[in-house]
Each structure stands twice: as C-alpha cells, then as structure tokens.
Amino acid sequence: MMSAPAPSSVYEDGRYLEQNPGWHEEDSPWKAAHVLRMVSAHGLAPRSVAEVGCGGGMILVELAARMPEAELTGYEISPQAFARCTERSRERLTFRFEDLLQTDARHDLLLTMDVVEHVEDYMGFLRGLRRHGGLHILHIPLDLSVQTVLRASGPLLHARQKVGHLHYFSRETALATLTDCGFEVVDWFYTYPAPGAPGRRLRTRMAGWLRRVAARMAPDLSVRVLGGSSILVLCR
C-alpha cells in the first residue's frame, strides 16, 4: 500500500495554488495594518523584519511602504508562491526560497502570519522559530468556537480541505501553546475580517457584521460562541 503524501506537499506541488489562486493576497493590507497597530502600540522600531511563509509577499510589500528604516525579508518554501513574491523584490525587500529554520538568520522582528495551523509538527516549528527572532508577531485563526463545533462537518472541515488548516485553536489554546513552546506573551488582540474584504459572499459579510457588533459588547463571549476571528500576538 502506498503511503499518503504529507499534508505539507500541497504547498510544493501546486495543489494549494489550484485551491487558492490568489494565495490570500486580498487580505494582505488588512494583516499589515494589524502588524503596524501592534508595532505602534509598543513603540517598536525594528531594523530587520522577516516573514516566514510569506506567500505572495504582499504583507511585506505593504510594510515596506510604512517602515522606511527596516530591511525586510520573506522566506517561502512553495515554488509557486516564491514565483509570485520574488517579482515584488525591491530596495530593502528581498525574498528567499528556503526554510528559515534551516538557516542561521536572525531578525529583530519575525512575522508568522496564518502559518502555525498549517504545520504538522506545529510545536516543533514554534520552538524552532524562537532563535530566529528577537521579537515575534504571530497571527493565528481561532477556528474553535461553539458554532463551528456544533456545525460538525461544516467550517472545520472546510478550513482543512480548502485552506489546509491541520490544527484548530481557541484563544486559550493558542496562547498556551506559545507559552509551552518557550515564548513570553507580551500583548495580544483579536482581529476580525475587514467589512469590505473582496470575495466575501453576502452571507459571510452579514455574519461578519453580526460578530463585530457582538464583539463590541462582549468580545470574549462573542469569539467563543460565534467564532470568525483570529488573534495577533506579540511575543519575545
């Protein structure tokens, strides 16, 4: 009997690109804005910024325009994604077709944006990341909520089959995982999909509006029950 291919192979053999032809680049301005919000809140001025699993590189493109003193580097292991991002190289912004964990590189600020949930050995991955960054900003989707669990084969399996999520987190398990892997959590906040994000169906936009209203009144309860959010975490 032939063994099944490793889940990570979808990023290297083109299957992920087939499922996600835009490589989620439409979310890049929104994600970059949250990174900048955290950077500003803590008065950070990193001279070197890197992103592991940078995809098409558009988060770094957005940051390069707003962090003029920083040298930015993107690391990517998917040949299809690297072909997209390398075309966006420019002064102070470079991309590398390699696994950051296999290098000796270290950066003042290391970004890991919606990557942890895709990695089979996610705790080994996180432990390996620590030595490559002085500070870390991670964005982790919170797939676990009352509504996603009750809907059985709905959202969780969709996240697995469509966008490759192998692990599902709540706020509590995401933060506990980071602590267990040796990180010190400095700050965190919830993020919610942008109201006018392109490609969202009407039902999705309506659900997002309801979540944002509920989050203003009771953010923790809203996230636990309705889901649809992520968490941005600053660690050292």
Results as ranks from 00 to 15, higher is better:
2 M>L: 15
5 P>V: 12
8 S>I: 13
13 D>C: 14
13 D>H: 14
15 R>I: 06
17 L>S: 13
18 E>L: 13
23 W>P: 00
29 P>T: 05
34 H>F: 00
35 V>L: 11
37 R>F: 06
39 V>Y: 11
42 H>N: 14
44 L>W: 15
47 R>K: 15
47 R>Q: 15
49 V>P: 05
51 E>C: 05
52 V>N: 01
54 C>H: 09
59 I>E: 07
60 L>R: 08
60 L>S: 01
61 V>K: 06
62 E>P: 00
63 L>M: 08
65 A>G: 08
67 M>C: 03
69 E>W: 14
72 L>N: 08
72 L>H: 06
73 T>A: 15
76 E>G: 09
76 E>P: 11
79 P>Y: 14
80 Q>C: 14
86 T>F: 14
86 T>I: 13
87 E>S: 15
89 S>E: 15
89 S>F: 10
93 L>V: 12
93 L>S: 08
94 T>N: 14
95 F>Y: 15
98 E>K: 05
99 D>V: 03
101 L>E: 08
104 D>N: 03
106 R>N: 07
109 L>H: 03
110 L>Y: 08
112 T>M: 02
116 V>A: 08
118 H>C: 00
119 V>Q: 07
119 V>E: 10
120 E>Y: 12
121 D>V: 11
123 M>W: 13
125 F>W: 12
128 G>Y: 07
131 R>S: 00
133 G>D: 07
134 G>A: 13
135 L>Y: 10
140 I>Y: 01
140 I>T: 02
145 S>T: 07
147 Q>R: 04
151 R>L: 01
151 R>A: 03
153 S>P: 09
156 L>C: 06
160 R>T: 08
160 R>K: 10
162 K>I: 09
162 K>C: 07
163 V>C: 05
164 G>Q: 02
165 H>F: 00
167 H>L: 09
168 Y>S: 09
173 T>V: 10
174 A>E: 04
174 A>Y: 10
174 A>I: 03
175 L>T: 09
177 T>K: 10
179 T>M: 13
183 F>D: 01
184 E>R: 15
187 D>H: 15
188 W>R: 10
189 F>K: 12
190 Y>R: 02
191 T>R: 05
194 A>Q: 05
197 A>N: 02
199 G>M: 01
208 G>Y: 03
209 W>N: 02
219 P>N: 02
220 D>A: 09
224 R>F: 09
226 L>H: 04
226 L>G: 02
226 L>Y: 01
228 G>S: 01
229 S>T: 07
230 S>N: 07
233 V>K: 01
234 L>K: 06
235 C>N: 01
236 R>F: 03
